[in-house]
C-alpha cells in the first residue's frame, strides 16, 4: 500500500468514525452530566452562562459520564507521568492483566489444538466431546469465574494462574472449533494423493492437515486472544485483586471514579487492539512464508 493509499484507505475512514464517536460522546457527556450540574448549581446558588454551564458539565470530578478529554488526561497522567512499575501506572496494571492473558491464551490455544486433533482423528470424540464443549460455552463466564477462583484458592492456588485459567476457558473454544474446520479442510484430491503414498496418520497430520489449517488457526487465535483478555479481566473482579485492569475497574466503581473506569477501559481496549494486531501481523507473515498470493 502506498502512503497516499494508506491515508485514503485507512486513515480517512477510521478517522471519520473516530470523529463521529467523539462528537456523540461529548453530547452524551453533556446530556448525562447536566442534571447533576443543574441540581448542584441550584443548591450552591451559582448562576452560570450557557457556555460556563457547558464547560462545568465537562469538568466534574466524578461525572456520570466523563468527557473524552478528561479520560485522555487521566490516561496521560497515569501512563506517561508515572513510572511504569508504580501502582498508579496503567502500564503496570495492563501488564498484570496482559501476563495472565498471555498465559491463559497459550494454554487455551494448546488445549484447543489438542481437542481438535482428537476430534478429527477419533470418531467417538467427535460425537461425545463436541456437545460438552459447546455446552461449556453457554455457561456465563461471570458465574463460572468466582467458582474457579474460590475453588482454586481453597487448594492454595492464587495469583496469576486462576485468572489465566479463566482465559483458557474462554479461549480454547474458538481455537478448537476453528482447528477442527481447518484440519478437515484439505480436499479429497490431496487426501487421495497422500493415500497413494501410504502416508501414516501422523504424516498426514503433519504434512497435510496442519499446514492446511494454518489460515484457520490464525483466524481463530484472533478471536481467542481477545476472549483471553476478557477472561483475565473478569478473573480479576471476584478476587478483589489489587492489581490489573479488572481491579482498576472494580476500584473505580467502588469510589465512583468514573474517569478511572473509563481510562481503564480504554487501556484494556488498547491492549486488545495490540494483541489482535500482533496475531494478525504474525498470521500475514506466516501465510506469506507459506506461499499465499499477496493481495
Amino acid at each position: 500500500m502506498s502512503e497516499r493509499g494508506f491515508i485514503q484507505d485507512r486513515l480517512v475512514p477510521v478517522g471519520s468514525i473516530l470523529m463521529v464517536i467523539l462528537v456523540i460522546w461529548y453530547i452524551a457527556a453533556y446530556a448525562m452530566n447536566a442534571p447533576f450540574q443543574r441540581d448542584f448549581d441550584r443548591r450552591t446558588d451559582v448562576t452560570r452562562t450557557g457556555t460556563e454551564f457547558l464547560l462545568a458539565t465537562m469538568s466534574q470530578p466524578k461525572p456520570t459520564m466523563p468527557a473524552p478529554h478528561q479520560v485522555a488526561e487521566n490516561l496521560w497522567k497515569n501512563t506517561l507521568t508515572v513510572k511504569p512499575w508504580s501502582k498508579r501506572s496503567l502500564v503496570y496494571h495492563s501488564w498484570i492483566t496482559l501476563s495472565a492473558t498471555l498465559l491463559g491464551f497459550a494454554m487455551g490455544t494448546a488445549l484447543g489444538v489438542a481437542i481438535a486433533i482428537g476430534i478429527v482423528h477419533i470418531p467417538a470424540l467427535d460425537r461425545s466431546l463436541l456437545p460438552w464443549i459447546i455446552t461449556s460455552q453457554t455457561i456465563p463466564i461471570l458465574a463460572v469465574a468466582p467458582m474457579i477462583i474460590v475453588l482454586l484458592s481453597a487448594i492454595g492456588v492464587t495469583g496469576l494462574l486462576p485468572k489465566a485459567l479463566i482465559s483458557t476457558y474462554l479461549s480454547f473454544f474458538p481455537v478448537a472449533v476453528g482447528m477442527v474446520k481447518g484440519l478437515r479442510s484439505p480436499d479429497i484430491l490431496h487426501l487421495d494423493l497422500m493415500r497413494t503414498y501410504s502416508a501414516t496418520k501422523l504424516q498426514l497430520l503433519w504434512k497435510l492437515r496442519i499446514p492446511a489449517s494454518v489460515p484457520f488457526f490464525f483466524t481463530s487465535m484472533k478471536v481467542a486472544i481477545a476472549a483471553s483478555l476478557i477472561g483475565a479481566i473478569v478473573g480479576e473482579l471476584p478476587t478483589g485483586a489489587v492489581a490489573g485492569i479488572g481491579s482498576k475497574l472494580l476500584a473505580g466503581s467502588y469510589y465512583s471514579q468514573t474517569i478511572d473506569i473509563f481510562a481503564a477501559l480504554i487501556a484494556g481496549s488498547i491492549v486488545a487492539i495490540m494483541l489482535v494486531s500482533f496475531v494478525d501481523i504474525l498470521g500475514r507473515f506466516v501465510n506469506a512464508r507459506m506461499g499465499a498470493k499477496q493481495s
Partner: peptide, 25 residues
C-alpha cells in the same frame, strides 16, 4: 506412482518441496 487428472500440488509447498513430498513420506 499415480498422476492425477489435476496437478494436486500442495499450495504451501514450493515446486521442489512438492516433488519431494512422497520422498519425505
Amino acid at each position: 506412482g499415480y498422476v492425477f487428472q489435476q496437478a494436486a500440488l500442495l499450495p504451501w509447498r514450493t515446486i521442489e518441496k512438492n516433488v519431494g513430498l512422497p520422498l519425505e513420506v
